Computed example of a mutant assay.
Amino acid sequence: MTAVDLPAVPRVLIAEADPWSRDLLKQVLLNVRCDARLDVCADGQHAATLLGEKTYDLILADWELPGVDGLSLLRSVRQKRRSLPFILLSSRNDSASVREALPLAPTAYLTRPLNMESLTQRLQDLLLNEGESVYCEIPPLAPGMTLPAFLERRREVCDGAPLRVDVKAAVQHSLGPEGLDLKQLEDQVHSDPQITAVLIAAANSAGYHGTPVQTLPEALHKLVPGQSMNLILGLALKHNVVLGDPGLVAYAERHWQLSQDSADYARRLARMLELDHERCYSACILHRLGDLALLRCLEDWRQGGGALDDQTIGESLDAFGAAYGSALRTRWRLPLELRQLIAGIYSLEGGVYSREALVVNLAVQMARLTEHEGLEELAGSKTARLLKVGLPELTRVRKT
């Protein structure tokens, strides 16, 4: 495809089995051509069906697709359209695999972890004329749309929370002469609920097996460094990852701070009691993910022309925040054990709870205290009694 025969609006097929890699490819492509008509699928048979039904201007397919693999798709396409741009993605970087693919003339053969700059440049060359850029206006709200109806619709499809951390700066700071320093990267991003949730979810996706991952350090070590870096950088490409409305920013700052304070208290308490402090930290840093995701959707509402004030924000959080969090944790398939630990933050009524659940519940109660409130009442609470911690221990945790 050359500059003279570029379609006005290109149609692109993305075939990728891993949901997080699929979403990353989608975001990179839309960052180049926000108007592209996209079809995405998770297996080769579905991709083959779509290829039989529609005419595409570009295909991105993973060699390791289940069912019909990407190389077979490329072979089928080349029998009909020799010049159709086809980017083949693969984890195979050995010379034998390259020799097997080259006779089918892929437009590009990209190995994982992907080089994001190289992929972006390829897409720009294929989808844009020289010097061209495409601007997509934010669509207005549908006539008669109410805020509750808007939020109800967005709950099952929202992209998660806004970013607290400057991801480009975090990655750049973590790059050294020998590549990405995972410990340095963890130090840079551990306070960000969105990054933590995405990396944990990605590390538990279909492409990875073994014991469920419940913490950021575990996720970073299970994912290869390049994949972690790409997923983090890909988050910055998404819509409204940085809030623009001052009222929304103020609410987000409060929720971020509550998450951070809770996580810090939980880590100290868990260490004191010789419990799993990383799991406790993880549960607390994620427990406001739904409220933050809701704030991001309220930014969409505002940009679409909807009215927004402090009372509306507060009422929306009360009505939808918990439901957004539950929907995200389920849809992203965060491990059941981690979800149960987060649930312990909100309720300990009935049933038998682990000591970690008691820790996170007590930590969040501590974080909610104002600077003028003491710890005496909390020290006498049922949660503190079950953990066998008193005022001296809580005071030490608060002051550490």
Rank of each mutant, 00 (worst) to 15 (best):
Ser76Gly: 15
Val397Tyr: 00
Tyr135Met: 13
Gly207Val: 02
Arg154Leu: 15
Leu358Thr: 00
Tyr324Thr: 02
Leu24Met: 09
Leu308Met: 14
Ser76Gln: 15
His221Pro: 01
Asp39Tyr: 06
Pro103Thr: 09
Gly380Ile: 00
His239Asp: 10
Leu273Ile: 11
Glu337Asp: 04
Leu123Ile: 13
Asn129Ser: 13
Ile14Pro: 01
Ser76Arg: 10
Gln27Val: 13
Pro139Met: 12
Pro19Asp: 12
Leu292Ser: 04
Gly70His: 04
Glu315Gln: 14
Arg254Trp: 08
Ile285Pro: 00
Leu248Lys: 11
Ala201Phe: 07
Asp62Ile: 02
Arg339Cys: 11
Leu362Val: 04
Asn93Pro: 02
Arg396Leu: 14
Leu336Val: 11
Val242Pro: 00
Ala201Glu: 07
Ala108Cys: 10
Gln172Ser: 11
Pro335Ala: 07
Glu53Cys: 13
Leu58Met: 13
Arg37Glu: 11
Leu50Thr: 05
Leu6His: 09
Ala8Ile: 13
Pro19Gly: 05
Leu378Gln: 04
Leu38Trp: 12
Glu132Met: 15
Thr107Gly: 06
Asp192Gly: 06
Leu163His: 03
Leu199Tyr: 09
Tyr135Cys: 11
Gly344Pro: 00
Asn93Ala: 10
Glu137Asn: 05
Asp35Ala: 14
Glu299Thr: 01
Gly234Leu: 00
Ser95Trp: 05
Ser316Arg: 02
Arg279Met: 11
Gly244Arg: 04
Leu163Gln: 02
Ile138Gln: 11
Cys280His: 02
Ile138Asn: 06
Arg368Pro: 04
Asn31Val: 05
Leu73Ser: 06
Leu127Lys: 01
Ile200Gly: 00
Glu100Trp: 03
Glu299Lys: 01
Arg355Glu: 12
Met366Ile: 13
Val224Asp: 13
Ala379Leu: 09
Gly160Gln: 05
Val389Cys: 10
Tyr265Gly: 01
Glu186Phe: 08
Leu286Gly: 03
Arg122Met: 10
Ser133Glu: 09
Phe150Ala: 13
Glu315Cys: 07
Pro217Asn: 05
